[in-house]
Structure formats: C-alpha cells, structure tokens
Design a protein around this nucleic acid. Structure first.
Ligand SMILES: Nc1ccn([C@H]2C[C@H](O)[C@@H](COP(=O)(O)OP(=O)(O)OP(=O)(O)O)O2)c(=O)n1
Ligand SMILES: [Mg+2]
Ligand SMILES: [Mg+2]
Length: 1135
DNA sequence: ATCCTCCCCTAC
DNA sequence: TAAGGTAGGGGAGGAT
C-alpha cells in the first residue's frame, strides 16, 4: 500500500521552451518573423556627432539610454564609463562639486545640446550648452529643475490609468528602435565563456571576441559610481556556487564525475537565481533588524518635493498636473498612513542589460543570454525519439482528452501527426518541410535566460529554446552569462533602495517590492518622484534600466510594472484600480500560471472582468477556499498581502535534474553522497538542522526514449519522492547520506533510468547554542560591509554578535525581533489576515478614512464598507500552523540500540535541551501534557497575531525563565545524556515529580548532563535525574515519541526484549501519570506503524506491550484500554 | 473542524 | 550539445 499514484494532474509547463517546441506555437513563427523584419531596420544614419565622444553622468533627461541611442544614431560615440582620454564631452544636468573637480578640464554640457542639435540637423556649438560657466552653476539643485523643458519626468510615460497619456512627458523608449539599423543583421557574436573547458566540443575562434569583451570591462569605468555601493568589492569575489567550487578539467560532466555537482551549479542560472534570492531576503531581513535606520537618500527626495512645491506656488498652479501633485502631497503629508503606496521595481531584461552594459554597440539589438553558442548543431544522437517527446509535451499543452489508460504512446503519435500537418503548412521552418529529426539538427535546445525587448518583438521570451528563438528572430545575437556581473548589479540595486527605506520585500535578484508609505510621508515626495529618482540612481550606478510599477497594493503594483516596461514607470492610484484591472487577462495575475489559467478558461474566464462576474462560492468550490478567495479579490484589484517581512525557512534542498546518466548503481550512490554533502553544507550555512529527509528522483517514464531530445536533459519522467523522519535533527552529511541511500535502495530503479535526483531536508530546527559555530554565517557577507555608524547602540552590538555567530542566537533573535516591532513602521505587514474576502482588503480599522472612502469607486467602496461591518477579529490565516512542533524534541539522544545509530555525531546538538524546555508544549500533541500543565501549551502554538517576532519558533526562549521552569519538567528531556547514567529504570520518582508541578530548574542541570554523558547502552538509561517528565529515552511529546518509535521499529526486523521492556515501562509511567490519552494514541500509532512498515516480526512484541500495559491499567485503574479490534487482525494485515 | 502527508503549482 | 533550481502556498484526501 505504499505507493500512491495520485491524481493525474498534468504537470506544469507553461511558457517554457517546451511549449513552442511542442509545436503549437509554430504557426506563429512566420508571422512574427515578418514582424521583426519590418521593425528591423530603418533608421538611416546621420553624422551630426561625428568625432564626438560623450559620457553621460547622473540623472538626465532624456535618460542616458536615450541619449546613447541618439548619439549612436547620429554618428557619435557613447561611453558607458568615463575615460578621460576618450571622452570629448560630458552630458549632465547637474554635477556635485566633487565630481566637477575631476572633470574640470572637460566640457560638461546639458542634454539639450544633443536634442537641439538633432533637431537642427547639425552640431550646434556646445559653448551655449555648458552646464557651468566656469564655476558658477547655472542650475541650482536637482536634475528636475535644471532643464526648463524637462519638467517632465525622465523617461517614458507616467501615465495614469485613464490613459491620460497626454500628461506624460516624454517617451524615451520610443527612441530605442531608432537605432536598429543595419547592424543588427550580423551573425552571432557570442563569445565563449572562459570556463567552458569542454574538451570534446572545443569551440573555435573566440579569442578575438574575448578581447573585445574584456575591453569592455575596463576597471576605470566604474570610477564614478563605485563609491555609492555599500557592497564594496569585498563581496565581489564571493564564490558563486556552493561549496565544491573546484571544477576545472574534465569534459562534459556527467553525473558520477566527482566534480559534476559544482560544474553544474556554476553554470546553472536557476541555481544562481535561487541562491541570490535567498541572499537578498536575508540581506533585507538584516537591514530591518539592525537598529540603525538612517536613510541618507531621503534628503534628496525632500529637496525634490520642496522644489516642486515652491515651483507650484510660484506658478500658481499653471502647470498641468500641479494640482494633482499638490493634492497628493498634502494627503501624504497629513495622512501618510492612510495612503499606502507599493512600488514594484524590476530590472529590464536583467541578464541582457547586465551583459551589454559595457557594450553599447549591442543596445537596441535583439539579444539573448544563453549557453548555446547559437549554432545548435547536434547530430542525431542515437536513442532519441523526438516524436515521442514532442507529442508528450504537446499533449500537455493542449491538455488532450484524458489519456487515461489508453495507450498513451499511440495517442501521442496521433497528436504528433496532426500537429505536424498544421505546422508544415505554415512553413515556419526555413528549410521547408523538415522532418522532426532534421529540425532538431538546427534547433538548439539551450534555454534563453533573458532576451532584449527587441527580440521580444519577434516573439522570443525568457525560457524559450534558442532554436525556436532563431526561427522567430534569425538575427538574434547571443551573449554569454555573466553571473558575477548580475550579482554585482543586484547588490547595487538593493543598496540604492536601502538608502531610502528598509520597507522592502526581496522578490529576486532583479526585483523587489517597496512599501513607500513611510518614505513618502516622511519626505513629502510623490510616488512618481520617488520612482524617478530611484530609477535614475539605479541606472547611474549600474547602467542598466529598471522599471517601476506603483499602486495601492502589491498586486496592482506588479501589474503596473508590466505596463511600465521597458524603462518606464506607471502609477495606478486607488481610484484607477477598477478601470485598470478590468481588461487584464487573469493570466497576468501573479500566482495564476498555466494550470490555474486553464481551470479558469474552463469556467469561461479570460479577463478580470469576466472573473468579477463569478460569485465567491463558485470560485472557492472550483479552485479551493484560499485560491478562490484570492482570485475573487485579485480580479477586483484587491490585495491585502503586506510586504513580506521575513519568513522562516521550512526546508533546505539540493537537486539536479540535468545530466543524470548512471550506468551503475555505485555512481548513483556516489551522487547521492555528493548531494548529501551539498545539502549538509547548506543546512550549516543556514544554521539549521532537520529531521525529515526526502529523496526525490526523476525516472525515465516507461516507453520514453533513453536519449532525450535536449542534450542530457531529463526528458519525459515519472517523479518519485520518498521520505523518512529521524529522531534527531541533523545536518550531518553522513547521516543524510545513509538515510538517503536507504531511501534510494528501496525504490529499486535501474540506475540507467534515473534522470534526476534531489534531497530535501525539512522539519527544521534551529539549534540554540550551536557550538559548531565555526561555520560561516550566511548573511554576513552583506552586513560586514556596512559601515557601522559610530554610535554603536546596544542593538547594533547585538546585531554584530549575531553576525559573528550565526544569526541564530536565541537571545539575539529575541531582542532584535522586538526591536523590529517597536517601530510601527510596517504595521500592516505583520498583521494576520482574515479569511473572508471582504476583510482582507481592509487596511486596518485605524487606517480607514471616511473621506477617502467616499472617493473610491462604488464597488470597492462597497466592499470595504461591508467588510467593516462584518469585520470580526478573526484571524486564522497567518502562520498556518507554524510548525514549532517538536520544539522540544531535540532533546534526547538516546544511547540505545536503534536510535542511537541514527546519528552518532549528533549527540552534541542535543544540549539545546534548554530551549526545548521552554518550548512548552509541542503543538502537535496537545494531548501530551498533563492537565495541570495544559496552560503551557498555549503559548507556543497560538502565537498571536504577529508572528513577526517569532522567527524561530521553537525556542521561545525568551520567555521568562520562570515560565520555563514550570514547563521544563514536563517536556524536556533531560536525559539526553542520561543514558549513561546508571539507573536504568525510570524511577518512581519521576512519576512523582511529574505530577507535581514543581520540578524546575534543570535547564542547567540538563545541560550538564548532556555534556557529561555520551554514549551509553540502551534505553534504560533514560531516566536520570529526578524531575524528568515521563519520557521515552528523552522523548516527551507525542511527536517525539512517535518519531522514536518509528525509528525503533525500522531499526531492526525484530525487537530487542530490553527495548520492549523499556517501552512497556514508559507506557506504565504514563498510565500512572494518568495520561491515558497519550497511551491510547501511542498504542494506536504502534498499530499503524506495524501495518505500514509491514513489520510482521514485531507483532508478538506489540502484543506483549499491549498486554503488559493492560496489566498496569487493571492494577491502577481497575480497567483496561479500549483497543480496536483491528489489533486482532494485525497478523493478517501484515501478511 | 483540524491536522498531517504528499504532492502539484508558481515564481524568478 | 548544455548546465531543467528551489522554496513556499495550498489542494486532495485520509487520520484524528
Ligand atoms: N525563465 C527564466 C526567467 C528568468 N530568468 C532570469 C533571467 C532574467 O533576466 C532574470 C529576471 O527575470 P525577469 O522575470 O525579471 O525577466 P527579465 O528581467 O529578463 O525581463 P523583464 O524586463 O520582463 O523583467 O531571471 C531565467 O533565467 N529564466
Ligand atoms: Mg526583470
Ligand atoms: Mg524580475
């Protein structure tokens, strides 16, 4: 009964390369091809700026990117970095004196020199456009004012929903295409990455390109901006991939090579993406926790706002828009809290932007970042069956009738034929009608990580296969990955924003959400001003464009970003939401992917307006309660999710589903070992240990070709996962390896069928005082850099301490979290959400403003009003069961037979027992505790409303000591070490103690014990010092005991009599303790375990346990436990 | 009802 | 050639 072939949901697969490859997109190709051609070249070149080499400094209008376009188009040279010897003119609207000093001998002109010259059709004398005549500044402060014409914001439109595009100022992006020109039709410029050593596929000639590339990375280039980064170069050299970064020789690594793991990870974009995402979340978390919140950038914003106000009053509101701005400003000043503004910032085609930031000649061209050399030549590899795979994916895409049990394969071939017909007719393939295999020959299946907007016009998108992209856009230029560059730019991005606020949620390395409420209220700036400034500064620092979407909530902000891109910003105010959301496709809602979209389509829903017509109960019935509720709100532009503050980690994993080809089992075993080491080091870095180990494998689907269409890809697979939970949390690679191997071996798949493997560790615990601290703290990298302000406050010291150790010191954590709370700054963010829709939208009672309400669109207003009426204070949602469970668990490390084997080395960890103590009741088993102590249970579980503080659940150490004392007796298991101790049995005393609440102390005592002991023989040891709660080798809570039982039963085919005795004794103590519920639950669990594990040889032992326990019952209660009849059936069931 | 376990789904 | 990772939300269905 083990296997669980569950529902047949289709796998996901949306807009990835497989979709088009499957073929359905093929029909579009030709069309798009034509399209790109037409967009392609136009734009003749002029020579207005011949001989002129410019460098743009700072915030300008038009933006540097636009100026670049203009300059290049008109025969000039554009430098991304200032080089004294090459640059003839500097373009700027404003320059700080400090910079001015460095440029004293240069001609610094205002940007309108460029625009005016173009308009005039010839180069105008620069003298009249000098920014500074000699020394005196012509323009006072900020960029905005410096140029009269430019009152407008920098780039792109700033439209407001109603399309008042008229309001907008200029459209910088439009210039982009202008540069297109003939140049784009060149061949591939892709250069080889230095690392790719692959002997077998040596690429020829790339030396020339390399030099080209290196030249671009001139160190001097960064001179002007480097000073702004907090990240400094210190980090710069940080290694990219996890530990094993050796890697060098060896050809195409295959799983099995010792360095395969690191080789793969150093080239995996998705791995980098994930890793960086985690790092930035940690960084933001740290920013928020550290006491000092100085925001050096805000002065600039204030100045901006002030200037605007002055100007407005001077002009008496003559400027268009001024009224609006005035009003907004006033509101934000007066009721900052009321007007929540969320900004979503995302870098434009991130990998591409970084990749070409030093290669201006590539700007405006269709670019793609990919590992492919662009050729995509691959001979037919024997063993491939493209038709099979193509059909398989098409099947998924189209979601054919359920291919229930019918011969899937034939069905697929049928599809293949159909689709082939469709395609071929479309002639999308340059070679006329190609056979599948032939197509393949010209079809690189390397994925495109990111492509420029020019390429997107042709239909190319991120995740598409290079081969497909080539068909859509033959002129696409590929550039290699530059992981160091991405990381560098990301840091600059985060640093820049952090100068203004720490109310940030890190979404990924190129993207974040900012709660602007506080900054705007503090500075008086408008949302758009803030966005402009940020984007400009980001561009100044990175030479990459960022776009920003702003709105009253996260959902709207994200949707607005899509409108803003590329290189623009877009603000949707609350009263514009209804109109804005109406025509959006539901597929655009974050969280609506392929699957959910398909379900909605079946309900006849395509747009948000469509979905607004469906009642809540219907959505919930069709999609589930939560999802239904979310959709109901989302299609109305309602979204109450606060910016996420920090999430505690629930699992740590490492998996690789590429390049896995084993020929023998030993190779698979070795690979598992490598994964275990990898995941172990990640656990260590994160400062956590876990108890549940899950092995995930991909296995070639029966009937699927042995060689995959994608080189070394996983192809069509079945996913299999198997997990186990051990008694003690671990991060020991040996333990993980051992568990993983045993999981692997029970699966019994042929080694050559594996296509992917992964290990995930969950049920994490944070060791309190981990002495193993030598490990490196993860986040540190970030913090270290930050220069600590002189006034080192206590908090800072604490923080520092935390950095040194792992972030996890309990005390530290407690304190810092408190600090966080105090400043109500992000109040809403931590608030629990209510379940009902209506309630969700409410900002919070205090935030609701009547006047404001009245201005809302009717439907929204209604909802809010209704919600207000109904509002209860329920909460629920929030941390859906923060698993603090086992809190205490860790305690014991029994020294006995079975469990001891689990993790030998782990013994040390246990000492944390102290914490455990505090933990109080484990949530899981509420039952466990004696009635008298029941109160204790409360605390941990229901951590009220704001979970924020509790990052690390388990420890709740903070609690007052006294509190601890009481509890300690109950749960903790002192004996971690006890085993050694002499007395074997549970002493009657224990019982006594348990019953009486007083036992306390002990934390220390416990610790002491732990140290002392060490290994010892059997279970017997458990009891030890006196005041221990009833326990089984240290396990106290239901969960702990269950885990222990499971391990015990799995540890050996037959039970040891001594262990049986110990167990009986334990149950007997429980009986005496009057904890009959626990006894009952354990007996039931024992039964289920035996059935599940098919432990036939344990049946007698189990009966022995039951009978003995019943004897105790009879003696003490004159009654017996009521046991399911199923016990009598065990033998049969097991067999 | 609520919890737990095993996935699928989604995002970058 | 190519580098299809990773963590959390939440639904389905069974246990309690
Ligand atoms: N399937 C994907 C999607 C994204 N990425 C990487 C490359 C992207 O540059 C980066 C950021 O993802 P975005 O979704 O922000 O996409 P871009 O930044 O490339 O483009 P956009 O301008 O739409 O944000 O993540 C990737 O490797 N594979
Ligand atoms: Mg992006
Ligand atoms: Mg992004």
């Amino acid at each position: 009964m083990s296997s669980s072939s569950r529902g047949k949901r289709r796998k996901q697969m949306d807009k990835d390369g497989w979709e088009e490859w499957g073929g359905y997109m093929a029909a579009k190709i030709q069309k798009l091809k034509d399209q790109v051609k037409s967009d392609g070249n136009h734009g003749s070149k002029s020579h207005i700026f011949k001989g002129i080499s410019i460098f743009v400094n700072g915030y300008t209008n038009p933006s540097a990117a636009d100026i670049k376009q203009l300059i290049l188009k008109h025969g000039g040279v554009f430098h991304h970095y200032y080089r004294r010897e090459l640059v003839t003119h500097i373009i700027a609207s404003n320059l700080p004196n400090s910079k001015m000093a460095n440029l004293s001998d240069k001609k610094v002109c205002r940007p309108n020199w460029i625009t005016d010259s173009i308009e005039a059709g010839s180069l105008l004398p620069y003298q009249q456009y000098l920014l500074y005549n000699t020394q005196s500044k012509l323009q006072p402060g900020l960029q905005f004012k410096s140029d009269p014409k430019r009152t407008k914001t920098p780039e792109k439109q700033i439209t407001t929903v109603n399309g008042s595009k008229d309001n907008m100022v200029m459209d910088g992006t439009s210039t982009v295409l202008g540069t297109k020109s003939q140049g784009s039709h060149c061949s591939n410029l892709h250069m080889k990455e230095e690392n790719s050593v692959q002997d077998s596929f040596q690429v020829t000639a790339q030396s020339a390109k390399d030099s080209d590339r290196h030249a671009a990375g001139n160190p001097e280039a960064e001179i002007l901006e480097s000073s702004t980064s907090n990240f400094k170069q210190t980090f710069r050299n940080k290694k990219q991939s996890p530990k094993n970064t050796s890697a060098v020789f060896r050809g195409p690594a295959k799983a099995g090579d010792s360095n395969f793991l690191s080789e793969f990870y150093t080239h995996s974009r998705l791995h980098h993406l994930s890793t960086w995402g985690a790092e930035f979340r940690a960084y933001v978390n740290q920013l928020q926790q550290q006491g000092n919140h100085s925001y050096p950038g805000r002065d600039k914003l204030r100045e901006l706002a002030t200037q605007r106000l002055d100007k407005q009053s001077d002009l008496g509101g003559a400027k268009y828009k001024s009224k609006l701005n005035l009003k907004k400003t006033r509101l934000s000043l007066q009721d900052g809290k009321l007007q929540k503004v969320i900004m979503h910032i995302d870098m434009d085609c991130f990998f591409v932007s970084v990749g070409i930031r030093n290669r201006p000649e590539l700007v405006g061209k269709p670019i793609a970042v990919t590992h492919s050399r662009g050729v995509g030549i691959s001979k037919d590899r024997p063993g491939t069956d493209l038709a099979y795979e193509r059909a398989y994916y098409q099947n998924r895409v189209y979601q054919r009738k359920n291919n229930s049990k019918t011969n899937i394969q034939s069905l697929m071939y049928e599809d293949e034929l159909l689709d082939d017909c469709e395609h071929q007719s479309g002639d999308q393939f340059e070679k006329g009608s190609l056979l599948p295999t032939e197509q393949q020959a010209f079809h690189s299946m390397a994925e495109i990580a990111s492509c420029s907007y020019e390429a997107r016009k042709a239909g190319v998108h991120n995740g598409m296969f290079m081969g497909t992209a080539k068909q859509l856009c033959p002129d696409v230029i590929t550039i290699p990955y530059d992981f160091d560059g991405y990381n560098e730019v990301s840091k600059m991005l985060y640093d820049t924003v952090a100068k203004y606020t720490h109310d940030i949620e890190a979404v990924s390395c190129d993207e974040m959400l900012i709660d602007c409420t506080d900054v705007l209220a503090d500075t008086g700036a408008t949302p758009m001003e803030f966005a402009s400034l940020l984007r400009q500064e980001i561009h100044d620092g990175t030479r990459c464009n960022a776009s920003a979407g702003l709105g009253p909530n996260v959902l709207v902000a994200r949707l607005a970003t899509k409108v803003a891109k590329p290189n623009g910003q877009y603000y949707v105010s609350l009263d514009q939401v209804g109109e804005f959301i109406k025509d959006k496709s539901v597929r655009e809602i974050p969280g609506v992917g392929y699957s959910l979209n398909s379900k909605l389509l079946q309900l006849g829903v395509t747009t948000c307006a469509d979905m607004q017509n469906l009642p809540l109960n219907m959505l919930q019935k069709e999609l589930g309660p939560k999802t239904g509720q979310t959709m109901y709100n989302s299609c109305r532009g309602i979204d109450q999710r606060p910016i996420k503050v920090e999430k505690e980690r629930k699992s740590v994993s490492a998996e690789i589903n590429y390049g896995i080809r084993f020929t023998q089992e030993s190779a698979a075993d070795r690979f598992i070992k490598g994964l275990a080491e990898e995941v172990s080091s990640r656990l260590e870095r994160a400062g956590v240990k876990g108890k549940t180990i899950t092995l995930k494998v991909k296995v070639r689907k029966k009937g699927a070709p042995k060689e995959t269409a994608k080189f070394l890809g996983h192809g069509v697979c079945d996913n299999v996962a198997k997990s186990t939970t051990i008694a003690m949390a671990t991060d020991n690679p040996k333990v993980i390896t051992k568990e993983a191997l045993s999981l692997l071996h029970v699966l019994k798949f042929a080694p050559e069928d594996f296509r992917g493997m992964g290990l995930q560790i969950s049920r994490l615990e944070t060791p309190v005082n981990d002495k193993t601290q030598t490990s490196t703290p993860s986040i540190l990298q970030f913090t270290v850099i930050k220069p600590q302000p002189p006034q080192a406050t206590v908090n800072q010291s604490i923080q520092k301490l935390a950095e040194d150790k792992n972030e996890e010191n309990m005390l530290i954590e407690e304190k810092t979290s408190k600090l966080k709370l105090t400043p109500e700054k992000t109040p809403r963010s931590n608030r629990p959400r209510s379940d009902t829709i209506d309630e969700l939208m409410l900002p919070s009672p205090s935030q609701i403003d009547k006047v404001f309400l009245s201005e809302l669109p009717a439907d929204i207003r209604l909802q809010i009003e209704n919600a207000l009426k109904k509002r209860k204070c329920s909460s629920s949602n929030e941390a859906p069961s923060i698993k603090q469970h086992n809190v205490n668990v860790e305690s014991q490390k029994p020294g006995c037979s079975f469990w001891q084997s689990q993790s030998t080395t782990t013994s040390l960890e246990t000492d944390q027992s102290e914490k455990a103590t505090k933990k109080c009741a484990a949530l899981d088993e509420n039952i466990v505790a004696l009635p008298s102590f029941s109160q204790q249970k409360l605390s941990p579980i229901k951590r009220p409303p704001n979970k924020s503080p509790r990052k690390s659940p388990r420890k709740s150490p903070g609690k007052s000591p006294k509190y601890n004392k009481k509890q300690s007796p109950i749960f903790k298991v002192p004996q971690g070490k006890p085993r050694d101790r002499s007395n074997k049995n549970l002493s009657p005393k224990k019982l006594e103690f348990c019953t009486d609440h007083k036992h306390n102390e002990k934390v220390e005592e416990i610790k002491g014990n732990s140290n002392s002991n060490k290994q010892l023989p059997r279970l017997d040891t458990y009891a030890s010092a006196q005041p221990d709660p009833v326990n089984l080798a240290g396990a106290v809570t239901l969960t702990e005991v269950k885990t222990l039982m499971k391990d015990w039963i799995k540890s050996s085919p037959t039970p040891e009599e001594e262990d049986l005795t110990q167990f009986v004794q334990y149950l007997g103590e429980l009986v005496l303790d009057k904890n009959l519920e626990m006894v009952d639950l354990l007996i039931k669990y024992l039964y289920r375990l035996l059935v599940k594990e098919q432990a036939t040889a344990w049946w007698n032992g189990a009966m022995f346990i039951l009978q003995q326990t019943q004897d105790v019952m009879r003696a003490t209660h004159a009654a017996v436990l009521k046991v399911s009849e199923s016990w009598t059936n065990i033998p049969q069931q097991i067999c």
